[in-house]
């Protein structure tokens, strides 16, 4: 995939070129939204909004990391989604198929490579991590999701959320510390190699 050529075509109005980029980045974008929002349906809405918004404003992309630019769009969509959710709390619906019917077995729940026990264990660990992420302040959560879950470097994160590099370092350190403290409460769920040491305080 020639990303730069696709971006140029998309900037010239080619929806097909943009959709190729969508297919390439949709898992990352969806995962970022999922970890920030903690809800699959809200994450799907935010992802769709982010891509629509990205297409409409792709002319403003002036080079650099396209992923970082896209992450900024999805972060904004997540903040909008959270604000909307605060104003109008609603019961989320199952995602619809193209025919408008409810999808009763979403694909993201299926992972054919795991045994039921492994899956149950992984689900528990994942649930514990998501619980700890949900308890983080939004600005810490955004940084830790981008840096540690999406594997973006500091400069990309700084570009995505438009804060200085020093702030990224500080937020990430504090977010990791808070997560560590929270995960100590789920010690029995964690694999032995990841068990954490207790009794350390940071002032």
């Amino acid at each position: 995939m020639n990303e730069q050529a696709l971006i140029t075509d998309a900037q010239n109005g080619s929806l097909d070129a943009f959709n190729t980029l969508v297919l390439h980045y949709q898992d990352s974008v969806f995962n970022t939204a999922l970890r920030i929002l903690g809800d699959g349906d809200m994450a799907a809405d935010a992802t769709q909004d982010a891509f629509i918004s990205a297409f409409k404003s792709i002319a403003t992309f002036r080079g650099g990391s396209f992923k970082a630019w896209l992450m900024r769009t999805v972060t904004n969509a997540c903040y909008d989604e959270l604000r909307r959710q605060k104003r109008r709390p609603t019961t989320p619906l199952e995602p619809d198929t193209d025919d408008g019917e409810e999808m009763d077995s979403p694909r993201w729940l299926a992972d054919p490579n795991m045994t039921p026990d492994q899956k149950a264990e992984a689900d528990e660990v994942e649930h514990a991590i998501q619980h700890c992420l949900d308890n983080l302040p939004l600005e810490f959560k955004t940084v830790v999701v981008m840096a540690d879950i999406q594997g973006m470097d500091y400069s990309e994160v700084a570009m995505s959320i438009r804060v200085p590099l020093g702030t990224i370092k500080s937020r990430l350190a504090r977010a990791r510390l808070r997560l560590r403290e929270c995960l100590q409460g789920f010690e029995e769920l964690l694999p032995a190699s990841y068990r954490l040491e207790e009794g350390m305080n940071v002032s």
């Binding site: 949709q26 969806f30 999922l34 799907a44 992802t47 999808m103 879950i149």
Partner: peptide
């Protein structure tokens, strides 16, 4: 190591 979830559907526009 948090499992990356597949997008529940295609988000093509």
């Amino acid at each position: 190591k948090l499992p990356a979830r597949r997008a529940p559907r295609n988000f093509t526009l």
